[in-house]
Each structure stands twice: as structure tokens, then as C-alpha cells.
Write a protein that binds this DNA or RNA. Structure first.
Lengths: 343, 343
DNA sequence: TTGTATGCGTTATCAT
DNA sequence: ATGATAACGCATACAA
């Protein structure tokens, strides 16, 4: 446990000032003679010099780190987002703190606080709190903030939105196009804008076609566990198929839920899609690994992460920060879980 | 973009010294009169004081941050590990840098370097490089290191191992117990100890039973993409079923691969498990969401993450660091993808 | 081209 | 109980 070597140590060894050492080792464009430069580099190499970024960052008042706050890295959707974020962060020389808020407002605020204290340059957040005080403080502290997934109407925050409503609309329209008229929507608690958006879009499409919406909502509060989503899907499918007029197609608010729906249908001896069609939402990878491959609405998770980080990095660079929001568009991923009732 | 407020600012406002302010705001046990304490706390509150951890950490030469280096957060197995790590880190007041090495030795070394420079207290790593020089430097720098998943025989590194070999053995034995004699093992490239371990265990069990091993290896180098694993599974299943004596049971080196195997079998009109049985390895959550629910060998991912972080935290505390390794034991998760050929 | 000296925000040591 | 000051490791304004 040797004390770590500093620029001063190297300065002594090289018989130069620490300023010169710093200039060399920090790749400053400040002129230093080749002779000294090589000598210093050599010594640094020999003694295994490792710069202490704490000192540098304190001095320059700038850390090359950002934070990402998401409900849970276990959720395939968010892990794809995080992967995208990290990819461009790495390319740009940033390191990223990953924070799982577990959908707990207190935890979320706690993490925001920590990010401030650790002096991150930016935060990418999927926020679920209703009280945005902490978040406003973040912005006041000159930390760049980008909201993803969950809409966040606060001044000074750029958004990467996803058009959930249009996604819901497209899904219902797609099912209608396949000849379905009795289309159910299975959703977890409608307590978040994204969920409401999908539902609204679905209802729009049903109304537009003169069809009666059939929404089944799981009211107990959600957790962060993929299996919970799966089980919720089973329960909702149960309820819907026990209804007086069961649907011929079930549209689920996310893919994991759709997996549960399919599971329950099969348990009842129903075939997907020949007996009942199922459609998901999100487009996670495993959707194409199950049987039947899940037709779903693609929400570009990985790309969303990359884009968010790209915007963040740009913001940290440009002095004049052009604020703008991006709205990503949904796309139907046509696979094999929907039956065509036409002809 | 107001300059952030420091202990000195507060000191001025309260007409006290910055030392006193620091003592109060850092919850020091150094005695400060109640009068001053409350006044300082009040002012800090009013001016929205946010401590700059950079200064504190530089001074104390200790950051409450750790790093986790894994191949890819997109892989459900590693995201579960990361989730576990983050959970206990949070409880213990640590923040975690998440790093995806993408199985690239250079990237891995780069991240190790960054972790050193950022002065993390510990690193949890699933290392795939053969050259462990950088890692040794880490240890010399007094950073605690815990190896997970991939074995790492270096002095000063604690390991959380998983008994892959026994896992492979158990799987083969399980299939044998169900009456299977022609059991194939489908694996990605056998270039990592963990994969070799599973294979060895499988071969052990086959030999022990006087059965002929049947290993099909995908030789091209793997990537980090779950879909790649899936496709690999399809390809391997194709090869195995095209063999002269196709197996009645296929054991895959991970669950995603098993998904691909099942997919390919179905594409050939074969039912799982009535025609061919399939067994996976890892026990990721989605395994129970597909059809049929996948029988597999559980590798305790989440618990592994928690345990690794717990050990790490303990190491950062205790002055005398008791080094020890943990070997987690495999367990067969009996679900419905294996047919019982007996009676 | 090189060196000196100061400060980033914090805490710890030593006086008072 | 409180204050003055130095120090953590680094980068930079200024002097030489």
C-alpha cells in the first residue's frame, strides 16, 4: 500500500518543477522542450504514475462523468437504454454512474442529490416523481439534464420523448387492419404519462373505428421485477378471457406483460395467434425468441440511450445551449403473434 | 449559472470560520455549540448548499465509489449481477460506475485505468483478458478487487466463483436420470474457463455413465449481443439434428442459446419436450416466460452481485483484509422443457 | 522554455 | 468551543 505518486514526486525525480511535469502529463499544449518531455514521460512510466483525477477535476471544476437514473437495470428496456448511453459516453471520454431508482421517489431524489455532490456534468433520467424540486436544483447547479422515457415538463430540461400515444394508436390500427374488432388493452396501473399515452392512443383508434374500447388495468402498484410484469399479464388475460365478450386480440402495454398474456392463453388451451392474437409494446430482444415471435411496437431503446448521451455531451461542450426536444416515432414490428382475420 | 456556494461562503454569512462550518456540515463529532450549529444549518439550507465531494474526497483520499466491469449490461445475466451490486452499494453509501467491456481486452484495460484514476475504492470485474498486468496494478494501488463469473487466479484478488463444472455435471446427470442417453452439448466457443468448466462437467457425467459425449461448438468468436447467442443456438441445433444419430436431449451453455435451440427445433416441426428435450444454463428470468418454461441450471446472478459488493464493502472497511474465495453452487431449476423417458 | 505561487473545496492540525 | 492555516493533487496566471 504505497502512497501514490504525484506530479511533485516526479518533479523531484526529474529535477524540474511540478508545473512542467503537469504540463507534460496532462498533454497541455503549453510548450515544453522535447528533452524534458521525454524524460518526464519516461520517469512517469517507470514509477507507474497514475493521475489523480480528483485533483484535476477539483481544479478545473469539471468532471468527465455523467449519471443515469432509471427505474431498474434489470428491465431489458432500460438496460438497452443504459447500454446506448454508456457506449457514446465511453467514446466521448465520460464515465457513467448507474442508478436504479426502483420507482421510489425518495430514492430518485437521493440519487439526484448524490449526482450533484459528485459533480457530474449531466444526468439522463427517467423520472417518476411528481415533485420536481430536486430536479430543478440540479438544473440551477448548472448540471445538464435530459429526460427520457417519462415526460418531464420543466424549464431547462431537454427531452427525448417517445410518442406513446401514436404507438398505442398504431397498434390498435394494426390489429383493426388485420380484421379484429374486439381488441382488449391490458395495462399496468395507469399512473404514468407514458402508460396513459399508449392507452389514449388505443382509445383514439377504437373510437375512430367505431369500436368499443376494452381496457383492463392492473391497479395494484407495480414493482421493478420483470416477473411481476409477467404475472400481471397472466392475471389480466385471465380477466379478459373471462369477460362476457372476450377479445380476439389483446394488446399489452409492454412485452413482458405480453409474455404473461401468451402464457395464460396457452394454459387455457388457446393458441396464439390462431385463437387469440397478442401484441406487445417496447420491442425488447427476447420478443423474437419466444413462440410465437411477438408482434409489437418498437420503442427504440438503445438508440434512445445513444441519442440522449449524444445530446448531453453536446450540451456540456457548447457554451450556448440550444434546447430542443426530440420525439421518437413508434414503428410496428410485424412478427407472428397476430392473426389476419381478413379473407 | 451561479457559482456554487462553499463552506467559506456560509462562514462569511454566519460570521464564523469555515472550520466550524465544515465541522457542522460534515457531521463531525467535533464539539460545536448548539447555537452555532443550528444557525449554520439554517443558512446552509437557505442558500441551498451542496457539498462538493471532490474536495472532500481529495482531502480524505477516499471516494465512496466503486466500479463494475462486465462484458455487457444488455445480457440479462450481467444486468442481474449489476442490479445486485448496486443494491448493496446504495445501502452502504457507495455509488457505482458501470463499465461494459464488450469482451474487448483493450477496453477492459482502459476501464481499469479509468477506475484507478477516478480513485474508486473497489472494482468488481468479470475479466476476459489473458494479460492481467493492468489488474495487478490496480491491486498495487490498493484498490480492492473482486472477480466474479470468470476465474482469476491472481494474488490479492478475492473471487466469487461459480462451480461451472459441477453445473455441467448436474445437468447431464439430470438428463440421464430422465432416461436420456443421447445427450448433446451445444456451446459457444470454448475459449473461456467458465465454458470449458461446464463442458468438462458434462463430459465427466457422460463418461461416468458410459455414454458418448456429443459436443457441438460454435467456433466463431462471440459478440455481446443476446440475439447472437440466440442465432448461435439455432445453428447448433441445426447441426446436431442433422447428425447421424441426433440427440434426444440438447443441453445449452446458456439460456439464450437454449432459446435458439428451441426455436430451431420448432421450426423443424419438433416438439419440446415430447420430441426433443432442451436444458439451459444460467436461469435468467425470461426462461420461465417462454414455452415450454425452460429447465435450466441456476447460476445465482443477483445474489452473486450482492455478495460481491458486500465483500467489497467489508474489505474497504477492515484494515486487516481477510482474503477468501466463495464458490457458489449450481442448482437444477426443474421446469418443463425436459421429457421423462422412464416408465 | 521553465519555475513560482496560488487556488479549487474540503478537512485536519494546531492554537487560542 | 472556535479560529487560523495548511494540505490533499492538480493546473494555471504570472514571473523569470
Amino acid at each position: 500500500m504505497s502512497k501514490s505518486v504525484t506530479v511533485h514526486d516526479i518533479a523531484k525525480l526529474a529535477n524540474v518543477s511540478s508545473a512542467t511535469v503537469s504540463r507534460v502529463l496532462s498533454n497541455s499544449d503549453y510548450p515544453v522542450s522535447e528533452k524534458l518531455r521525454t524524460r518526464i514521460l519516461q520517469i512517469a512510466e517507470e514509477v507507474n504514475y497514475v493521475p489523480n483525477l480528483l485533483g484535476k477535476q477539483l481544479k478545473k471544476n469539471s468532471t468527465m462523468t455523467i449519471g443515469i437514473i432509471i427505474p431498474s437495470i434489470i428491465n431489458p428496456f432500460y438496460s438497452a437504454v443504459a447500454f446506448g448511453v454508456e457506449e457514446v459516453a465511453r467514446q466521448e471520454g465520460f464515465t457513467v454512474f448507474t442508478c436504479n431508482s426502483l420507482q421510489d421517489p425518495e430514492l430518485e431524489d437521493e440519487y439526484i442529490q448524490t449526482m450533484m455532490e459528485k459533480q457530474v456534468k449531466g444526468v439522463i433520467i427517467s423520472s417518476i416523481t411528481t415533485n420536481k424540486e430536486k430536479l430543478k436544483r440540479l438544473i440551477k447547479m448548472n448540471v445538464n439534464v435530459i429526460a427520457i422515457d417519462q415526460k418531464l415538463d420543466e424549464e431547462g430540461i431537454s427531452q427525448i420523448e417517445f410518442d406513446h400515444r401514436k404507438g398505442g394508436f398504431l397498434a390498435a390500427k394494426y390489429l383493426q387492419g388485420k380484421g379484429h374488432t374486439r381488441i382488449g388493452y391490458a395495462t399496468t396501473k395507469l399512473n404514468r404519462p407514458s402508460r396513459k399515452g399508449i392507452c389514449l392512443g388505443y382509445v383514439d383508434a377504437m373510437n375512430e373505428a367505431g369500436l368499443e374500447p376494452f381496457v383492463e388495468e392492473y391497479r395494484s402498484d407495480e414493482t421493478v421485477n420483470p416477473i411481476f410484469e409477467f404475472e400481471t399479464g397472466r392475471e389480466l388475460a385471465r380477466r379478459m378471457m373471462d369477460a362476457e365478450r372476450p377479445p380476439t386480440a389483446i394488446f399489452a402495454c409492454n412485452d413482458l406483460l405480453a409474455f404473461g398474456v401468451i402464457h395464460e392463453l396457452r394454459a387455457r388451451g388457446l393458441q396464439v395467434p390462431s385463437d387469440v392474437s397478442v401484441m406487445g409494446f417496447d420491442g425488447i430482444d427476447v420478443g423474437q425468441m419466444i413462440h410465437p415471435p411477438l408482434t409489437t411496437v418498437k420503442q427504440p431503446d438503445y438508440e434512445m440511450g445513444k441519442m440522449a448521451c449524444r445530446m448531453l455531451v453536446d450540451m456540456t461542450r457548447g457554451e450556448d445551449k440550444p434546447m430542443f426536444n426530440v420525439t421518437l416515432q413508434p414503428k410496428v414490428l410485424e412478427r407472428q403473434s397476430v392473426r389476419d382475420l381478413n379473407g
